[in-house]
Design a protein around this nucleic acid. Structure first.
Lengths: 225, 225
DNA sequence: CAGGGTGTCAAACGTATGTTTCAAACAGAC
DNA sequence: GTCTGTTTGAAACATACGTTTGACACCCTG
């Protein structure tokens, strides 16, 4: 189910293994034996394991960020001048993610899981790489969010964006497992698209929730030493 | 700042290193040299690295789950008979977490970060350990959530709970870094307690959001082979 | 047909890991 | 004080890792 080209076989195997085991827990030997290539091929073609990780991300993030730019362009064109709504902004992102052409049926899960890992496992080098390669669509998304929620203070918006990222990254990065659990429990099968359809209203509602709660309960008792 | 007891020194060092680097990325040699104990002490006192991980979790999770049980007891007593509201339920959890007695000023961050890691890095053995040791307060929390949101279908509730867990685990597990970023960007300092005060209304609003959005956009085009 | 660039292969390298060993030090009971 | 079980100490163990090496096959341009 793949090109017989060594580079692509390595990328396919690495992507899948990274997605299901994380980065440190996946050795080059696992990757090369799954890809049926020689161990040295990774260092020959990519230079190092870290560079392979970057290549795995670049392969799906570059087309994704292009898709995203287009979606944002269309959104801004449609709204001409006026700021897009929160729902529109979130949907532009979601749609771009969900409609990305996939290499296979597991593509969308792997895509989500890798994005989640990028946030949670962030290995220093990965965070740096992602920041300097894909900062533009990210800050554009942030700008759209800001325009869509003018009623929020900067601090409120900052935290609520983190909450959104968390809900998304976490759910999507475990989407496969969560889908399985639900299927066993209630006999309902869910697609990633349906998760997204449930996630967006959740996020939008949270994002526009009434003000920060009055801390009704007392703060932590002044350290009883 | 600790007992000179070897076991506790190992636990203190391990807890801190796990929280800031993850499990696989923290070696026993790092732990023992930080704790200023002999390398063999870990295997002598705990048996294995995995068992040490379990012990680190048990040390703070056991008192936490006791605190939680009490909080839930009080909540149910206060409501006698009637189901607790969503806000009450979320606050009971939050308060229990925030008010746990801490070993030091970094305690609450470490606590949160470890909880986050438990979810994201879950190492098989850890997930199994946590499930069989602490399933009771967890399912009790789930039951309270269910009673607090009778209007939701089981499937909706399931996914929204995952979204809540994600927002919480993700934010709290990076709370230190996120607080720093915000301080550099807007000059505002935040405490974990304040994050919680912002998180709860966000979660409550998302949890009680209007129905699942109609999937206005077409599903992914039937695989153009 | 030569020959240089390209890619593959098995093997080895150096390092770091978790774990084990066994002797020495220690503690408390008799 | 001596003995017994527990705890520490330095060193070694076996294994796994990422990376490097150098020989070999291939291709295709001259």
């Amino acid at each position: 189910m793949a090109q017989s080209d060594t580079v692509d076989r390595i990328l396919d195997a690495a992507e899948e293994l990274f997605a299901e085991r994380g980065f440190s827990e996946t050795s080059l030997r696992m990757i090369t034996s799954k890809a049926k290539v020689n161990l040295a091929a990774v260092n020959y073609h990519f230079g190092s394991k870290n560079a392979l990780i970057h290549a795995v991300f670049a392969r799906f993030l570059t087309p994704f960020s292009a898709t995203l730019e287009t979606a944002f362009d269309e959104l801004e064109a449609k709204c001409d001048g006026k700021p897009a709504t929160l729902n529109q902004t979130l949907w532009a992102l979601t749609e771009s993610a969900v409609r990305m052409p996939q290499r296979n049926e597991k593509g969308i899960s792997i895509f989500m899981r890798l994005l989640g890992l990028a946030y949670t496992q962030s290995q220093g080098h990965l965070r740096k790489f992602l920041e300097q390669e894909y900062s533009e669509p990210f800050s554009r998304f942030m700008r759209l969010l800001k325009e869509a929620t003018p009623e929020l203070s900067s601090v409120d918006r900052y935290w609520r964006i983190q909450f959104m990222l968390g809900a998304t990254a976490f759910t999507m990065s475990s989407s496969d497992a969560l889908i399985d659990i639900l299927e066993n429990k209630l006999g309902v099968h869910t697609t990633v698209q349906e998760i997204a359809a449930r996630l967006v209203p959740f996020l939008a509602a949270g994002m526009t929730a009434p003000d920060k709660m009055l801390v009704s309960a007392p703060a932590r008792p002044a350290s009883v030493a």
